[in-house]
Simulated scan of single mutants.
Amino acid sequence: MSGALDAERAGRRVEEILDRLAASGDRTACEAADELVRVLMEFYGAGLARTVELLGREPGGPAAGALDALLADDLVASLLVLHGLHPHDAATRIARALEGLPQPVENTGFDPATGELRLRPAASGGCGCGGSRDAVEESARDALACLAPEVTKVVLEDDTAGEPVLLQIGAGPPETTGAGGRPPARTTR
């Protein structure tokens, strides 16, 4: 995910520069810088849109493999999302982002109206040491930031369904049960 980290760093750098200009108090320079960023975003967005269009002309053809390779690249995928050009829907992009987490999680629901994504730790055959709750939530937020920016809140639910059932072991053979599953009544003589 080094490409996505580079995109995040570049975004932060642009924000820092714009903040420095705003702090200078030169309103004309701030407006010019905002306009420059907007024009460059439109220019690069149009180029990316044209690239996706050209690669998608022959479904199943050689270019389809190139488009798949671009969509698999975190940097390119995040740029396509940023410009509204990513061909996959939010559910598909969320699933892809969650695939790379260090601890497997299950998506238990996404509410597009609130931006909330609910996750639950997935059952795994590992040692059960998947990291703290906060670490899992943070890694999920980081993974979703570039591929699914519509997710604005991640909630990690408790994993009560995956707990093992306590098995009771008795000291002797099981008793025969009577009506209703109860042990038979004892009679005294």
Rank of each mutant, 00 (worst) to 15 (best):
A161P: 08
D26S: 02
D68G: 15
A97T: 10
L98A: 06
L80H: 00
F43I: 12
R9M: 10
E163I: 12
R38K: 08
R96P: 07
T28I: 12
A7D: 13
A179G: 05
I94C: 00
L75I: 07
P102S: 14
G115V: 05
K153A: 12
G45C: 04
E53H: 15
A69T: 08
L98C: 05
L40A: 09
D142P: 01
A7L: 06
T177Y: 11
L167Q: 13
R182A: 14
L48E: 02
A49F: 01
L5P: 02
S124G: 15
P183T: 10
G180M: 06
E15P: 03
T51Q: 05
G125K: 00
Y44D: 06
P104T: 07
T92D: 04
L117K: 05
D68C: 09
Y44F: 13
P174C: 12
F43R: 13
R120G: 00
A90K: 03
E116K: 10
T160M: 12
L5M: 15
T160A: 12
L67T: 04
R57F: 05
G172W: 08
D26M: 02
G61E: 03
R57P: 04
L55M: 02
A95Y: 13
L5F: 15
L167N: 09
V76W: 00
A161H: 11
P184T: 11
G56P: 01
R9W: 09
L82K: 10
P104N: 14
G162S: 10
H88I: 07
D26F: 05
S2K: 07
G56L: 04
T28C: 08
D158E: 08
H88C: 09
D134Y: 12
V136A: 02
A145L: 08
A33L: 05
R120A: 01
R96G: 08
D73Y: 06
D89H: 08
A29C: 01
P174V: 13
G61K: 13
R20G: 00
E35R: 15
L80A: 03
S139P: 00
A32K: 04
P112D: 05
D159G: 10
A113F: 06
L40W: 06
H86R: 00
L119Q: 00
P87C: 07
A72L: 02
P112C: 06
D74E: 12
A95I: 09
A46H: 06
E175H: 12
A46V: 09
G126M: 02
A23N: 14
A66C: 07
T177A: 08
C30F: 09
D73P: 03
M1L: 11
R27F: 10
A113H: 14
G170K: 11
V14L: 12
N107K: 03
A140C: 04
G181Q: 02
R9E: 10
A91S: 13
G180R: 07
L54D: 13
D6E: 13
S132N: 02
R38M: 05
V14M: 13
E106N: 10
V165K: 08
P87I: 04
V165Q: 13
C127H: 15
A69N: 07
T177Q: 14
R120L: 00
H83V: 05
S132Q: 03
L70E: 01
C127L: 11
G126D: 06
G181E: 03
G25A: 05
R96E: 15
Y44S: 06
